[in-house]
């Protein structure tokens, strides 16, 4: 017997689907299907079908990417010993060889996320089964999303109090802040990556999507907003 994993945002897409077909007051035809379900890394997730939005404002679910968290005074040294690059200051991130990223959250906590092709996180999870002293693995079950498009700063200004324009992107900043009342981790860039507690995922997604749709954007296929 093997289980399946489900993205924390899956429900939001189903709800959107239901709302749309109710609005159209007819059974959902081929065109009215705004979402499809897919499975990657044994995780079920749903995604938008529209492709046009990613230039103005697009949102997509990337919760299916594998990730690993660790904290503790010896976490940096332990990760270093696993041949990972360590961002040299708190709240910075670095790309990983072979894809994915490592983000330093504060001094002693790290988030490692794979790209669609890499699988560093599962290895680290395995390696951390019996961690050394002062290394505390953190189970990551985030709702992970990506945002992209020309109106992204406008969306952020409506949902988050941080002055993103003032960030120096060349320093690879990581921002821990709140967005529409939810604690989030944000990596800004051409594409904005946002992680939050999965149990807030549906709310965060729906709230952002409502505003995005007002701004003529929408949910898109993840390939259009794929990170490094």
């Amino acid at each position: 017997m093997t289980g399946f994993r489900v993205s924390p945002i899956c429900d939001a897409m189903r709800l959107a689907q239901r709302a749309t077909s109710e609005k159209m007051a007819k059974p959902s035809s081929e065109e009215s299907l705004i979402a499809t379900e897919r499975e990657i890394n044994q995780m079920r997730f749903a995604q938008g079908n529209s492709s046009g939005h990613s230039t103005t404002l697009g949102i997509t679910d990337l919760s299916f990417l594998t990730r690993f968290g660790v904290k503790g005074a010896a976490a940096a040294a332990w990760l270093h010993a696993q041949n990972l690059p360590i961002p040299d200051a708190p709240n910075r991130w670095l790309p990983l060889r072979g894809g994915g990223l490592i983000a330093r959250l504060g001094f002693n906590e790290f988030l490692i996320e794979d790209s669609i092709n890499s699988s560093i996180a599962p290895q680290l999870i395995e390696l951390s089964q019996h961690p050394p002293a002062k290394v505390y693995p953190v189970l990551r079950q985030d709702a992970a999303i990506a945002l992209g498009g020309s109106l992204i700063l406008d969306l952020l200004a409506q949902t988050c109090s941080l002055h993103f324009r003032a960030l120096n992107l060349s320093e690879c900043p990581v921002v821990l802040t709140t967005m529409v009342g939810v604690n989030v981790t944000i990596i800004p860039g051409e594409i904005y990556r946002i992680w939050c507690d999965g149990t807030y995922g549906v709310y965060l997604w729906q709230t952002l999507l409502n505003i995005i749709e007002e701004m003529q954007g929408g949910a898109v296929e993840f390939e259009q907003l794929l990170p490094l």
């Binding site: 709240n91 001094f107 109090s161 821990l176 802040t177 709140t178």
Partner: peptide
């Protein structure tokens, strides 16, 4: 909103604290 400077995360509005 009042600003407070977190020694790690920098200056943020008091609502984050």
């Amino acid at each position: 909103m009042k600003l407070i400077t977190c020694p790690i995360n920098g200056t943020r509005p008091v609502s984050e604290f």
